[in-house]
Design a protein around this nucleic acid. Structure first.
Length: 728
DNA sequence: GCGTATCGCGTTTTT
DNA sequence: CGCGATACGC
C-alpha cells in the first residue's frame, strides 16, 4: 500500500519544515496533532499547503509515515501533495498512504475482501461500462424501444448512482428530481434490479460499489475496523465538501479508535452534488466528531483584490453559505474584464487576440487557461486556436481508456483476470464479423454457466460464417493462458490478434487510434502484474492527449470541474450566457446554486487577469441564430467590479434590429424556473405536481418542505427546491 | 431473425 | 464524435 513519489526535485530537498512560512491560523491547523480538526478554507487560502505541512510535521514529530492516511479525490493531487511533503523532509514521506478514496477502497477490498465473501475476484468498471450494461439490459428486456422520452442510459446510471450516493431510494429520487421521468418508474426500477444482478453475477464493481463495500467492510467486521483504525492513527481528507454520505461514514469509522481526523474544505466550492457530494458533511463534522477544533483560513494567497472582490460578489448572492470573508494582500489593480461577443466566432477571436497580447507581456502560455461549463463549448475556439497555430491541451474530455479501441484491447486482459466478466466477453465477441448482439449474448450465457468459461468457449458450436475467426479467438486464449503472465508479453499477443481486427473496424481513422495503443503498451511496461494495471487504468485513466514529453508547455482548455484546485495567471471563462451557464436544465434551488458556485470556482482560479466572455447569439442545430443575454449570474454583479471591453458592443443591438426587423423576438429566455417561496403556499391550497397530479397542502414544514396530500398518491413530503410544484 | 451500412442529430459536470 | 433509427441483404 505504498505510493511512490516521483519527480523529486533534488535541489529543493532537505530544507526541514519552515513553519514560519505559515500564518497564524495555518500554523494552528498544522500543529494540531491530536483530536479532530475541521479547516474551513476559502479559495486560494493555501489549504493544500496546510495538509502538506501537517503530514511533514507529524512525521518530524515521530509519527510513523505508514500510519498516516491522506485521502483526496484525484490521484494527481495526492501525489503532488506527498511529493511536496517529501521535499520538506528528504523524501521520508514515501511510506505515507496517500490516494483517492476509490484507490484506497480498491486496495482494502483486495486485501480484506474475503471477509465480505467476495474475495478479491472482482473487476472495476467505469462509467462507460456501467452505461454499456444498461444498454445490454435495455435491449434484452425490450425497454424504451422507440420511446424518445425514455431516459438515456447515462441518465439511468446517474439516477442509480445518485440514489446510492445520497442514500435514498431510487423511487424517491425520481419523484424528487426526475419527476418528468416518473412515467417510466417501473422500468427504471427493473433496470436497477437487473443492473445490480448483472454486476453481482459477473464479479463487477462500479465506483459506487467500491465505496459501499469499503463502508460494509468497516461496519460488518469489528476486527477489520479495529485493525484499520489502529493502523492509521492520523487521517486527513482534502476537499471534504466533495464527500458524499458514504465517504463521511467511512472517515468516521476509520478513525473510531482515535478521532485523529483533519478535514479541509470550502462549502463555496461544492460543485459535485450531482454525484452525491453533500457539503453539509462539513456542517455535520463537529457534531460527528465531538470536540472538533474549527479553524478558518480566510486569507487568500492567490488573487489580486479586484478579482477577489468580483468572486466575493458572485458568491454573495448565494442562498446558503457559511460566512467567510476573504482578503488578500496581493498587490494589483487590474479589473476583471467582460467581453460581449457578437457570436461564438468573435468570442474565439477575442480570446486568441488577448492570449497573444498576454503572451507578449511576458505571461507563459501554460499559465493561461480557458474554462467553460461543458466540453463542447470550446469547439469553436479549438478551431480558431488550431488555425493560429497555438498548441493547447484539453482537459475533462474523453480519457484514453474510455475510447472504443482501448476498451477493445483491455477486454482481453480483463477476462484473463476475471473470466466471469461478461461485459468484456461481449466486447470481444462483437469484434468477430457476422457476430452481433444476439449471437454474442447466446455465447456469453453459454459460457457463463460453465465452470471454466475458456474451456466452454472452445466447445461452443460456432456458426459456419464465422467459425474461422472464432477458432482464431479460442487459439489466442489458449496461448494467453499457457505462456508467461507478464503484462507486456500478454499485450503483445493480444496485439497480434487484434491488429487486423482493429484495422478493419477503424479503417477510416486508425492512424490516430494506433498511437493510443502504442501508448498503452508503454504504460504497461511499468507493471509486473495484470490486476494492478487494470485497476489503475480504470480508476485513473490517462488523458487522451499524448503525454509524450511532459515538458511541452501548452495553453490549457478545461471544463470548470476539471480545473478545480488549479491556478493560473490569466483565466478566461467563456460562454457565460443565459441558457448555457447556468446549464439550461438547472432547476431553481440547489441546482441553481451549484451553478453559481461553479462560476465562483472558475473565477477564483485566476491570479491576476480574469476575462469573462459570452456570445450574443448562439447557433441552434437547425442553423438558426438564437439571441441570448448574459448569464443571470453576471447581471447580478455590482457595477464597478468589472470593466467592459470591446469596441463593438454599443452597436450590437442596432445591428441585430436591422438584420432581423422583428427585433427582439427572442423569447425572453423562458424564466420557467421561477423560484418558489414558502410564502407562495398556505395550508389548504391546491397544487399540481408533474407526477403526482393535483393535491392539497396539509402542512408547511421547517425550511423549504411541504407536506402535500395527493388525490391519487397519498401524503408526500416535497422539497420546494426539487419538486416541480405549481400553485393552482 | 440477424448483421451491417448509412444518415442525421444532439452534446452537463466525473472520482 | 457517438448514438439511434432505418433500410437492405443474407
Amino acid at each position: 500500500m505504498n505510493i511512490e513519489i516521483t519527480g523529486e526535485d533534488k535541489s529543493l530537498t532537505g530544507q526541514g519544515i519552515d513553519l514560519k512560512a505559515l500564518n497564524e491560523s495555518q500554523y494552528e491547523a498544522v500543529i494540531t496533532t491530536e483530536g479532530p480538526v475541521l479547516v474551513i478554507a476559502g479559495a486560494g487560502s493555501g489549504k493544500t499547503r496546510t495538509l502538506v505541512y501537517r503530514v511533514a510535521h507529524l512525521i518530524e514529530k515521530g509519527i510513523a509515515p505508514e500510519s498516516i492516511l491522506l485521502l483526496t479525490f484525484t490521484r494527481k493531487s495526492s501525489q503532488e501533495m506527498l511529493w511536496r511533503a517529501g521535499r520538506l523532509l528528504n523524501d521520508t514521506c514515501s511510506r505515507v498512504v496517500g490516494g483517492t478514496f476509490h484507490g484506497v477502497a480498491n486496495m482494502l477490498l483486495r486485501r480484506y475482501g474475503a471477509e465480505l465473501g467476495f474475495g478479491s475476484a472482482f473487476s472495476i468498471i467505469d462509467r462507460g461500462d456501467a452505461e454499456g450494461i444498461v444498454n445490454l439490459l435495455k435491449s434484452s428486456l425490450g425497454l424504451g424501444k422507440g420511446n424518445k422520452r425514455f431516459p438515456s442510459k447515462r441518465v439511468i446510471i446517474n439516477m442509480i448512482s445518485g440514489s446510492i450516493n445520497k442514500s435514498i431510494d431510487l423511487e424517491d429520487l425520481v419523484y424528487d428530481q426526475y419527476a418528468h421521468l416518473g412515467d417510466h418508474i417501473d422500468d427504471i426500477l427493473q433496470l436497477q434490479k437487473h443492473y445490480r444482478e448483472f454486476k453481482y453475477n459477473h464479479g463487477l464493481m462500479d465506483y459506487d460499489d467500491l465505496l459501499v463495500n469499503w463502508k460494509r467492510l468497516l461496519e460488518e467486521s469489528d476486527q477489520v475496523r479495529t485493525t484499520l483504525s489502529e493502523r492509521f492513527s492520523h487521517i486527513m481528507v482534502d476537499e471534504y465538501q466533495d464527500t458524499n454520505l458514504i465517504q463521511a461514514d467511512i472517515v468516521r469509522m476509520s478513525a473510531y479508535t482515535h478521532d485523529n481526523v483533519m478535514v479541509v474544505g470550502d462549502d463555496s466550492q461544492s460543485i459535485y452534488s450531482f454525484r452525491g457530494a453533500d457539503f453539509f458533511n462539513i456542517m455535520r463534522f463537529p457534531k460527528v466528531f465531538k470536540s472538533t477544533r474549527i479553524i478558518k483560513l480566510e486569507e487568500n494567497y492567490r488573487s489580486t483584490q479586484p478579482i477577489l472582490s468580483l468572486t466575493n460578489d458572485i458568491i454573495r448572492n448565494a442562498v446558503e453559505k457559511f460566512t467567510k470573508t476573504l482578503f488578500t494582500s496581493i498587490e494589483g489593480d487590474i479589473l476583471p474584464k467582460l467581453f460581449t461577443a457578437r457570436d461564438e466566432r468573435e468570442e474565439a477571436r477575442f480570446i486568441v487576440k488577448t492570449i497573444k497580447k498576454l503572451h507578449q507581456q511576458g505571461i507563459d502560455i501554460e499559465n493561461i487557461a480557458v474554462l467553460f461549463r461543458s466540453g463542447f463549448h470550446s469547439y469553436k475556439l479549438e478551431l480558431e486556436l488550431a488555425a493560429e497555430g497555438i498548441d493547447f491541451e484539453k482537459r475533462g474530455g474523453l480519457k484514453l481508456t474510455e475510447s472504443a479501441h482501448m476498451k477493445d484491447v483491455l477486454a482481453f486482459l480483463r477476462v484473463l483476470v476475471n473470466p466471469q466478466d461478461n461485459l468484456s466477453w461481449n466486447r470481444i465477441l462483437l469484434q468477430l464479423e457476422k457476430v452481433g448482439p444476439k449471437t454474442a449474448r447466446k455465447i456469453t450465457t453459454f459460457i457463463s454457466s460453465a465452470s471454466d468459461p475458456f474451456v466452454a468457449l472452445t466447445k461452443y458450436p460456432a456458426g459456419k460464417t464465422w467459425r474461422m475467426s472464432f477458432v482464431k479467438l479460442t487459439d489466442l486464449f489458449k496461448e494467453l493462458r499457457s505462456g508467461s503472465q507478464n503484462p507486456s508479453v500478454l499485450y503483445e499477443k493480444v496485439q497480434n490478434y487484434y491488429q487486423p481486427v482493429f484495422l478493419q473496424i477503424y479503417a477510416d481513422d486508425f492512424p490516430k487510434r494506433q498511437k493510443d495503443l502504442d501508448q498503452l503498451s508503454s504504460i504497461m511496461k511499468g507493471y509486473d502484474e495484470l490486476q494492478p494495471f487494470i485497476d489503475d487504468t480504470t480508476l485513473d485513466p490517462p488523458e487522451t492527449v499524448s503525454l509524450d514529453a511532459g515538458s511541452v508547455k501548452r495553453l490549457v482548455l478545461s471544463t470548470i470541474h476539471s480545473s478545480k484546485g488549479l491556478e493560473f495567471d490569466a483565466v478566461f471563462i467563456i460562454g457565460v450566457a443565459d441558457g448555457r451557464f447556468p446549464h439550461a436544465s438547472a432547476a431553481a434551488g440547489e441546482q441553481w446554486e451549484e451553478e453559481r458556485r461553479l462560476l465562483y470556482v472558475a473565477a477564483t482560479r485566476a491570479k491576476e487577469y480574469l476575462y469573462i466572455t459570452y456570445p450574443r447569439q448562439l447557433m441552434t442545430p437547425d442553423r438558426q441564430f438564437k439571441h441570448v443575454g448574459m448569464s443571470p449570474f453576471l447581471s447580478e454583479l455590482s457595477a464597478g467590479l468589472y470593466e467592459r471591453v470591446g469596441e463593438q458592443f454599443s452597436n450590437d443591438y442596432k445591428m441585430f434590429s436591422r438584420t432581423e426587423p422583428s427585433a427582439i423576438n427572442y423569447e425572453p429566455v423562458q424564466r420557467k424556473k421561477k423560484k418558489l417561496n414558502m410564502s407562495d403556499f398556505s395550508q389548504g391550497c391546491k397544487v399540481n405536481h408533474p407526477f403526482f397530479g393535483v393535491g392539497t397542502v396539509v402542512k408547511l414544514s421547517d425550511g423549504r418542505s411541504l407536506d402535500v396530500h395527493f388525490d391519487r398518491h397519498g401524503l408526500k413530503t416535497l422539497h420546494l427546491d426539487y419538486a416541480k410544484l405549481k400553485r393552482l
